[in-house]
Nucleic acid binder design. Sequence first.
DNA 1: TCTAAATTTGACACTTAATGTCAAGTATAA
DNA 2: TTATACTTGACATTAAGTGTCAAATTTAGA
Lengths: 103, 103
Amino acid sequence: MNVEKTTGEILRESREKKGLLLRQVAALLDIDTAILSKVERGERKATKEQIIKLADILDLRKDELLIHYLSEKIAYELLDEDVASQTLKVAEQRVKYLKAHRR
Amino acid sequence: MNVEKTTGEILRESREKKGLLLRQVAALLDIDTAILSKVERGERKATKEQIIKLADILDLRKDELLIHYLSEKIAYELLDEDVASQTLKVAEQRVKYLKAHRR
DNA sequence: TCTAAATTTGACACTTAATGTCAAGTATAA
DNA sequence: TTATACTTGACATTAAGTGTCAAATTTAGA
């Protein structure tokens, strides 16, 4: 997983590679061009639903894009914590525990 | 790190061990008793500031409690994703990358 | 048991963050 | 140029987070 590119960069590159305009993709997402522009430049975050649609529109692997997007979101949430790495390790254990003990 | 207890359970146990009342701790946090009750029972999330104050009030290690709290928050955010574990692994790489390349 | 204190519950108010639109501005390229 | 694409910033709307209050319930001691 490429951790050096932002989700926005991936989206922009993919869109340009397909020769699509912001306007066109935004229309498919049913949002204003301005938002998509901001998403691609990292000024705004997309919603999960938009990411899923974008994967479809841009022929990207849905799971990969989702992991990219979610991990970026979480990384930014924790970036200012100096316990960030430990938190993520514990979070992994928690997820494992919670999924096993699903009520 | 104990991943089987919720943050709320830890807070309640610690408070009771000290013989403090909800009313008393809530007053120190400057919130209504109702909120603290809900936090301890997992019906509401505390804020980060409240967690830090609680560590002080209840003589808990601040970093440990914070990791507990943050990891729980993140685990719940991802619990419904079937890419949860992968996301957390990638998030770790991201944090490492972002911290190294801090602008 | 009685009853006072502690806790829980739910309706609601307030604030902040997220998500979006719009229109005017800037950049690009034919 | 000038038309098209993109960006910017002010603002509106909506959703989520955080809180209060008062009534209901539970708990524990006399």
